[in-house]
């Protein structure tokens, strides 16, 4: 019996297989197969899926629900607001301007905006806003310290050392502990006013306040209607001269209406009417000064 043998295996590829394999190994085709076709399939699948309106909305709803479920976890909730460093009134104001309905997710809080809003308040110098562990919105406020009372055309206001409006008071009597300044534009030269007031400390019991004249220079008002007119340049030195003169010769104790220091080379005194007549009498002069 003749044994039936299979033909010996020939591993040779056919010409067609060989060509196909070479074609597939071509770099461009290879890239297309490895990246292009998967990308195309993914793109087509997504476009087909998103072609329907209901599926699109379902996806959007799903995503927003997922987002909400994360945002509303108790770890992210803010329940109350704590304000430190602010007085009663300021804290009240802050609570008023921040439109927050607690409890609130911390994802919905824009801390930078809140801080800006708080710093926008007049009595607040600076503020830091953060979310403290335990779900507390912590607002740390540094208040402005009023150093002057400014009486102007529309009322009486408190200014801090940099001249910024702090608060409005009904009258000057509300803050008798602070010095008074007055006049148009006085709030822009608070630093100078403070310097002048520091020098005027020597006669503080007599100082009634400072007046900004013509938006360019200061007058110091004393009681008994006395007035010291200070120059634009070097008002502090001028006032020091007046005070030194006063200490040496009791200038301000005398019956003087005004000390005019506007021209440094020629300080001038204005005497009161009585004093002038008295002076004439002593010098035997008549009404016309003859």
């Amino acid at each position: 019996m003749q044994q039936v043998r299979p033909a010996p295996h020939d591993p040779a590829p056919t010409r067609f297989q060989f060509r196909v394999q070479r074609w597939l190994l071509t770099p461009g085709i290879r890239f297309l197969l490895r990246a292009g076709i998967p990308a195309l399939v993914v793109f087509m699948a997504t476009s087909i899926f998103l072609a329907s309106e209901t599926r699109r909305t379902a996806v959007v709803d799903r995503i927003s629900a997922l987002r909400a479920s994360i945002e509303e976890r108790p770890e992210f909730m803010v329940n109350l607001m704590a304000i430190d460093g602010a007085g009663e009134g300021v804290a009240e104001d802050i609570r008023e301007i921040l439109p927050l309905d607690f409890p609130l997710s911390s994802f919905d809080l824009e801390l930078a905006d809140i801080r800006e809003l708080v710093e926008g308040l007049d009595p607040v110098k600076s503020a830091t806003v953060r979310i403290r562990p335990g779900g507390i919105l912590q607002v740390d406020v540094t208040e402005r310290v009023p150093v002057l009372v400014w009486r102007h055309r529309d009322g009486v206001a408190l200014l801090d050392a940099s001249g910024v409006h702090v608060d409005v008071v009904p009258s000057r009597a509300a803050r008798p502990d602070l010095p008074l300044i007055a006049g148009q534009g006085a709030d822009t030269h608070v630093a100078e006013a403070m310097d002048i007031l520091a020098v005027a400390e020597e006669v503080s019991d007599r100082v009634r306040g400072l007046v900004r004249m013509g938006e360019r220079r200061w007058d110091v008002l004393l009681d008994r209607g006395q007035r010291i007119l200070l120059p634009e340049e070097g008002p502090v030195q001028a006032l020091e001269r007046v005070i030194a003169l006063s200490e040496a010769q009791d200038l301000l104790e005398r019956d003087v209406e005004a000390v005019d220091m506007r021209l440094a080379a020629r300080p001038t005194l204005r005497m009161s009417d009585d004093a002038q007549k008295n002076w004439w009498r002593i010098r035997h002069l008549d009404e016309n000064g003859q």
């Binding site: 020939d10 591993p11 040779a12 590829p13 010409r15 297989q17 060989f18 394999q21 070479r22 190994l25 071509t26 770099p27």
Partner: peptide, 18 residues
């Protein structure tokens, strides 16, 4: 020719390059 094709195809396949 078939033998050359066999060897070349296997080598190309290993090299992954045409």
């Amino acid at each position: 020719e078939r033998a050359i094709r066999t060897a070349l195809q296997a080598a190309q396949k290993m090299a992954e390059i045409r």
